[in-house]
Nucleic acid binder design. Structure first.
Length: 884
DNA sequence: ATATTCACG
DNA sequence: ACGTACGTGAATATT
């Protein structure tokens, strides 16, 4: 039997796959339907044909020689949808990893290359099979050449041979060229002869064979109109035939022998199939390349060993690397004492040890050994525990939670079980499943030991399996610096901030609370009096009824469930009755009392007298840090009454708080990345940026800018960063929409670089699927492809806001790591304790304060080199109230 | 569990 | 013609 060559019309198959399947999307928001369909069709064809040689031909973008013949060739083609465009590089990558050759040409199309190869194959004594969704290929069929035509869906294919063509059409394969010359082709915009479709075309070809013969015998054609059209469109018919003829002598620098089927790169394929969630394809790979699944089935993934601490220590010394997790009883921050330590040394099965203070301290030298590598998941928890034992961890090189966050900052859950699902399409158990939820939840010490050990075996095995996958991706995406220089060292910085906390005096809060209570009671009375009845002021529903039904205030905005009573609505009703002001003030004070007085008091740690807020490194989609329990990043400052709360946050004994605040960091970042000359100049001059904006946008002299104009300009500056709309600005400033639109227009004229930047960034996001910060932190934006206008618009705003907010986050994170390291290296006792997005606060020993102040300012201003200077304002005081 | 409101950058 | 500014977390009411 002859050897077979399978020639794939890649472009045709790719389009076919895209439209045959629903728009599939990965958990990360990458579209994959065309890729998946393509690979499935490819695999099915390979299975069916069992070829010895294999090649994929693609069309390249842009004009081909056919456009020289006829300038409108393919002129009616629509622009490729971006959902498809994005899948293009990925499918090529997969074909590469399959070690299949890709052929393409800037002059010829895929069918010309395919036609040339099939002819070459025939001449050299092979059979060839052409896989395509395009009937034009029928002209290539002969006794050694068949076409595999994709039918509906992605699994069905028809075999087209000389015989089947004869049977179905009663013409020869070559005659398809003539048929096309007469019929034309809508999709390629080939004109043909008007009035001739498939039926007439076939009749003519059956009777006359070639177009040349047809025109030689035109008198024999029956039908007046038909004859007339043939006469009138003769040149067009011949040109159409030429356009429809597949070229079979394309110069190629490969022979059939070069297309021999090669061993695939299974390792890479398995990674890619996982990434794109092609589970069926993953299962078809040889066993060893979907190991986690196999491990799970065989139970290896949850298998642990029982060894003594000494045995584990010995093996760590010989292997120099281990994954670990401390198990504390109940929630980690309630009780910091570990009861178990799970350790997995290299490939060995995990060991889950019962542990106490003495045993933990026995490991001190190992954790502090620079030559022993430590890896884990959510290491912040573990580092805090180590800090409690005064163990100073060295050489931690991998945290799977952090790694996943920089690979995809929009994931909602970074638990180990979820990562296992994402990467290995297999899960074992959630923490909630192990401990139970709500009232019935258990502590770790109450869990049956085998169950607990299985869970942590799974935990550590998964960390181990994830490591190379994630680190390779990080490297590929150019994020090594972000990961190794910023995010990873930051884990220790946040551990320390959380561990140390901030001194908080509850008596100050008590006093403020008592004061608030009096005022709140008074306001309550006034509100009830105005309303003429008592009701729950805290219920927007009931308040709405009182205001908009009983008192007949005009309804300005509605929510999904009823009337909106938010502050911006109430402010528009101001001056129309005392009750509005009472409600606004009541709301403000009630918020202070419940969230900031009562809420904060609960969270002062009884042992330390300090608040240990949690700084989360994997929450925001832009790269910022978030703070919870309590949120120390939203302590009141904008109103005088709220600001008093800050008197409760104090420097430690014999200490001062040193507060360093980046001035206008987001606008500076914007000036730099947009390269807007005007805004850069403003910062170079050290101008008051809002004043300068006001002067330019409102056309007044710099010195004549009034406070009102300045504050409006300030709102415009903020609006721009957020992705402004005229409506949004008009609402914010309470001005007519037309006026707002005018402001924006003037703004973008003066800062034209910013306009260009916005457009470019959205375009980049559309073609790549993501945007990047200055440190290559990524955010994927699948919303840009949404059909819904609102969602898509959101995507556009996110596309240019994220690089700004995210780059600012990058900068302060760099500063945090450097400040932390400098304080440690200079052997200072002062500690970094807070970060509030553009602000760092150090609890400094009184005699170190000056040194700390200088060190912080220098580090922060030099954190990165932008096109504008970074400016930091410093304040020192005994409380957070005094530093502002 | 979800919606509303409001505190911050 | 559409519906409207980025990123968070906490308290409260309501389903």
């Amino acid at each position: 039997m002859k050897e077979r060559v399978l020639i794939i019309d890649g472009s045709s198959l790719f389009f076919r796959a895209f439209y045959a399947l629903p728009l599939l999307k990965t958990k990360r928001g990458i579209y994959t339907n065309a890729i998946y369909g393509f690979i499935m069709m490819l695999e099915n064809a390979i299975e069916k044909v069992n070829p010895n040689y294999l090649v994929v031909c693609f069309d390249m973008k842009g004009k081909t020689f056919r456009n020289d013949l006829y300038k409108d060739y393919k002129g009616t083609r629509q622009k490729t949808p971006t959902e498809l465009e994005q899948q293009w590089p990925i499918v090529r990558d997969i074909i590469d990893k399959m070690n299949i050759k890709i052929l393409e040409s800037p002059v010829y199309e895929a069918d010309d290359i395919a036609g040339t190869l099939s002819l070459t194959a025939e001449n050299e004594g092979y059979d060839s099979i052409l896989l395509t969704g395009d009937k034009d290929y029928f002209q290539l069929v002969d006794k050694n050449t068949q076409v595999l035509l994709t039918r509906k869906g992605i699994t069905e294919m028809d075999i087209i041979s000389v015989e089947s063509i004869k049977e179905d059409y009663d013409i020869t394969p070559e005659e398809f060229i003539d048929l096309k010359g007469l019929m034309g082709d809508n999709s390629d915009n080939i004109p043909g002869v008007p009035g001739i479709g498939e039926k007439t075309g076939l009749k003519l070809v059956r009777e006359f064979g070639t177009i040349e013969n047809l025109y030689d015998n035109l008198d024999k054609v029956t039908g007046k109109k038909l004859k007339e059209n043939l006469e009138n469109y003769k040149t067009q018919a011949f040109m159409s035939k030429k356009l429809g003829t597949i070229v079979r002598n394309v110069p190629l620098d490969v022979g059939i022998k070069d297309l021999k089927i090669q061993e695939r790169n299974y390792e890479d394929l398995s990674n890619m199939y996982r990434e794109y969630e092609f589970n069926t394809l993953l299962q078809r790979l040889p066993e060893e390349f979907h190991k986690a699944d196999i491990e799970m089935i065989s139970g290896d993934l949850i298998k642990y060993e029982d060894k003594s601490l000494d045995e584990v220590i010995d093996s760590i010394h010989s292997k120099k690397s281990f994954a670990f997790k401390f198990v504390t009883d109940g929630k980690i921050y309630e009780s910091i004492k570990p009861i178990y330590l799970a350790i997995k040394v290299n490939d060995d099965a995990p060991v889950i040890l019962n542990i106490d203070d003495e045993k933990t301290l026995k490991l001190k030298s190992i954790f502090e050994d620079e030559n022993i590598e430590k890896i884990g998941h959510n290491l912040k928890e573990d580092i805090m525990i180590l800090m409690d034992y005064e163990i100073d961890i060295k050489n931690y090189t991998y945290d799977s939670m952090i790694a996943e966050y920089i690979l995809n900052s929009t994931e909602s859950n970074y638990d180990i079980n979820n990562l296992s699902n994402i990467y290995f399409s297999i899960g074992y158990m959630d923490l909630d499943e192990l401990l139970g939820k709500g009232k019935k939840s258990k502590k770790f010490s109450e869990i049956e030991e085998d169950e607990l050990k299985k869970y942590f075996a799974f935990y550590l095995n998964t960390i181990h399996n994830l490591k190379s996958l994630q680190l390779e991706k990080i490297k590929e995406q150019g994020m090594d610096e972000l990961y190794y220089e910023i995010e990873l060292p930051l884990v220790e910085v946040l551990s320390s901030m959380e561990f140390i906390g901030i001194r908080t005096k509850s008596s100050v809060l008590d006093d403020i609370g008592d004061n608030l209570d009096i005022k709140i009671k008074e306001l309550e009375k006034n509100i009830y009096r105005e309303a003429g009845e008592e009701f729950n002021i805290n219920s927007p529903k009931k308040l709405g009824v009182i205001l908009f039904e009983k008192l007949n205030y005009p309804v300005i905005k509605k929510t999904k469930t009823g009337y909106s009573t938010s502050a911006d609505v109430l402010e528009k009703l101001e001056g129309k009755g005392e009750i509005i002001n009472y409600v606004l003030e009541y709301r403000q004070l009630a918020k202070l009392k419940s969230t900031y007085v009562d809420g904060l008091k609960e969270l002062i740690n009884g042992d330390t007298g300090r608040i240990h807020s949690h700084f989360n490194q994997t929450v925001t989609s832009t790269g910022r840090i978030s703070s919870t329990d309590p949120n120390l990043q939203n302590i009141p400052i904008r109103t005088d009454e709220g600001r008093l709360i800050r008197k409760a946050f104090l420097a430690s004994e014999d200490c001062l708080l040193v507060d360093a605040d980046y001035s206008q960091i987001e606008l500076r970042v914007l000036a730099s990345i947009s390269n807007d000359k005007n805004m850069i100049e403003a910062f170079d001059n050290d101008d008051d940026i809002h004043r300068r904006t006001a002067s330019e946008v409102f056309g007044v002299d710099f010195d004549d800018v009034t406070p009102l104009l300045r504050s409006r300009a300030k709102a415009v500056n903020f609006g721009i960063v957020y992705g402004i709309s005229d409506y949004g600005l008009s609402q914010n400033l309470n001005i007519p929409r037309k006026v707002a639109a005018d402001y924006i227009e003037k703004y973008l004229k003066h800062y034209s670089g910013i306009k260009d930047y916005m457009d470019n960034e959205v375009e980049k996001a559309r073609s790549k699927g993501y945007v990047e910060t200055i440190l290559k932190r990524r955010r994927y934006i699948p919303e840009l492809n949404a059909k819904n206008y609102n969602i898509r618009s959101f995507g556009e705003r996110v596309a240019f806001n994220t690089p700004i907010q995210g780059s600012a986050a990058d900068i302060i994170k760099i500063a945090m790591v450097k400040v932390y390291e400098a304080l440690r290296d200079e052997k200072l006792e002062s500690k970094l304790i807070l970060q509030i997005h553009d602000e760092l606060i150090v609890d400094a020993k009184e005699d170190e304060a000056d040194k700390v102040k200088k060190l912080m300012k220098d580090i922060m201003e030099q954190a990165v080199e932008l096109k504008v200077k970074l400016k930091v304002d410093m304040e020192v005081g005994s409380s957070l109230y005094d530093t502002k």
